[in-house]
């Protein structure tokens, strides 16, 4: 029983340390105008658009944004999550999409445009098909805004900790409005 209690306390302490460490990074402030794009062509970019409207943040939504679209932009929001249906509708392959995303992120980095990465789709946007896009988009971010169900295995929290990226984990999609208002005043 004593051993169990010690074990429990130790695990709790470790989790707390991890959580403090992950959230210790101060959230940056992003400026408008904002370009909104997808990494993986899921319909989640539409939900992000709705979230931004609710947060009264204007954004140019271009799911297939190219480096040229970054002209005059001060913040790039990337909504991560793969959808074969979305790729089919866009008429591009998975490889095309990955090339587009990496090229866009490199161009944003070169132009010193900060990236805000959102993951809204929870477990449905995790797994082998989505995680390549999730990783690329998360690692390039200056701030991560994640719906909790997509981080049950600490996929995003681990990236945040390793890359020292501020992260906000919200319980459900609607909960993303307040953090957006906070970081994009």
């Amino acid at each position: 029983m004593t051993a169990f209690r010690f074990h429990f306390v130790l695990v709790a302490v470790l989790i707390t340390c991890f959580a403090i460490s992950a959230s210790a990074q101060k959230a940056p402030t992003f400026k408008q105008p904002v370009l909104l794009t997808s990494a993986g062509q899921s319909a989640d970019v539409t939900m992000a658009s709705t979230l931004l409207k609710k947060a009264k943040i204007e954004a140019l939504a271009k799911p297939l944004a190219q480096p040229a679209d970054l002209k005059g932009i001060h913040t790039l929001i990337v909504v991560a999550g793969f959808s074969s249906k979305g790729l089919g509708a866009a008429g591009i392959s998975r490889e095309d999409e990955m090339n587009r995303v990496t090229t866009l992120l490199e161009a944003a980095k070169k132009a010193k445009i900060p990236v805000l990465t959102m993951h809204l789709g929870g477990a449905a946007r995790r797994g082998s098909q989505s995680d390549d896009f999730n990783k690329v988009a998360a690692e390039a971010a200056a701030y991560l805004l994640i719906v909790k169900q997509g981080d049950e295995d600490s996929f995003f929290s681990s990236i945040a900790q390793e890359k020292k990226i501020p992260i906000e984990v919200v319980d459900k999609i609607a909960g993303a409005v307040a953090p957006l208002q906070s970081v994009i005043p």
Binding site: M47, T50, G122, A123, A124, K172, I173, A174
Partner: peptide, 10 residues
Amino acid sequence: LDEGFPRAEG
């Protein structure tokens, strides 16, 4: 939908 956004697994 819940609060205008998709209901999730569970």
